[in-house]
């Protein structure tokens, strides 16, 4: 993976607790606000996403965590009435700048959605879709290679290797979601955004996907929205707590779940609201 440096490798294997001060900021939100029409859904969010770490966004439903996530690869552009203020950078470049191309941005910042959404095509074609539109494979052998390695990384290769040309919609929910993750990986993004990727899955499938997320951290920067605090605690290094459109508190996951500063975070993790 060309995005790996020794530096980041070192970070990736670093202990969760002892995050080093030379951690790399991959993405940074600076006073991000989002309006849907007249209604403001997000207020002045300042949040850093660190390289090769899993950042979890938690908070009660409707708190703006998904909205923030969708800003990171400009998926909000697809909603006519949405308007984003403030600044979001990827490697210090403003992603809402005119010079940034949204297609290229999304090739670098991939996304996995809440409900598994495989295309009504074969498993192979689902994974090959991204590389194909971006022209990443010159020959069929290259494409086969990309598909295989993506499926392997998504930990679903063994289950589907004999039925690559069957429709992706025929898989079980958990398999579909891992297929969608493979599809996102196949484009070789730098950052993967996951919007409640396990909410539609059963506990066993959830466990598989969580394991996968932890493995993926080695090579990718991950931002995950989750409704479940346990999940955030299990998979993330950093956690950000949202409430009513505001970022309440952000910090190392262990600290957030043991000793949060904000009263609302305390209330939330102890189950007072949600």
């Amino acid at each position: 993976m060309n995005i790996m440096t020794e530096q980041s490798l070192e970070n990736a294997v670093g202990d969760k607790m002892n995050a080093k001060s030379n951690e790399v900021i991959k993405m940074r939100g600076d006073k991000v606000g989002v309006f849907y029409g007249e209604k403001q859904a997000l207020f002045d969010v300042n949040l850093d996403v660190r390289l090769n770490q899993v950042t979890a966004l938690i908070g009660p439903s409707g708190c703006g965590k998904s909205t923030f996530l969708r800003c990171l690869n400009r998926m909000n552009d697809t909603i006519d009435s949405a308007r984003v203020t403030g600044k979001i950078t990827l490697d210090q470049e403003d992603i809402y700048d005119k010079s940034i191309d949204v297609v290229e941005l999304r090739a670098r910042v991939g996304m996995v959605f809440q409900k598994p959404n495989p295309f009504p095509k074969s498993i192979y074609e689902n994974v090959a879709y991204g590389p194909r539109i971006h022209g990443l494979a010159k020959r069929k052998a290259d494409m086969d290679q990309i598909v295989e390695s993506s499926l392997k990384k998504a930990a679903i290769w063994n289950e589907v290797k004999d039925r690559l040309h069957e429709p992706g919609t025929g898989l079980s929910g958990g398999q579909q979601q891992r297929l969608c993750i493979a599809r996102a990986i196949a484009v070789s993004p730098e950052v993967i955004l996951m919007d409640e990727p396990c909410s539609a899955l059963d506990p066993i499938a959830t466990a598989r996907v969580e394991e996968l997320i932890d493995e993926l951290r080695q090579n990718y920067t991950i931002v995950i929205v989750t409704h479940s605090m346990q999940q955030a605690a299990r998979v993330s290094q950093r956690t950000a707590m949202f409430h009513l459109g505001y970022l309440v508190e952000e910090g190392a996951t262990d600290k957030m779940f043991t000793n949060p500063d904000d009263k609302r975070t305390q209330d939330y993790i102890t189950g007072r609201f949600g």
Binding site: T78, M111, N117, F119, C180
Partner: peptide
């Protein structure tokens, strides 16, 4: 065609026409 299909493709960096 469900919106999820569109989002899935756009999220991978496809253009609208693609």
């Amino acid at each position: 065609v469900p919106r999820a299909m569109r989002d899935g493709s756009l999220g991978l960096g496809a253009t609208r026409s693609e």
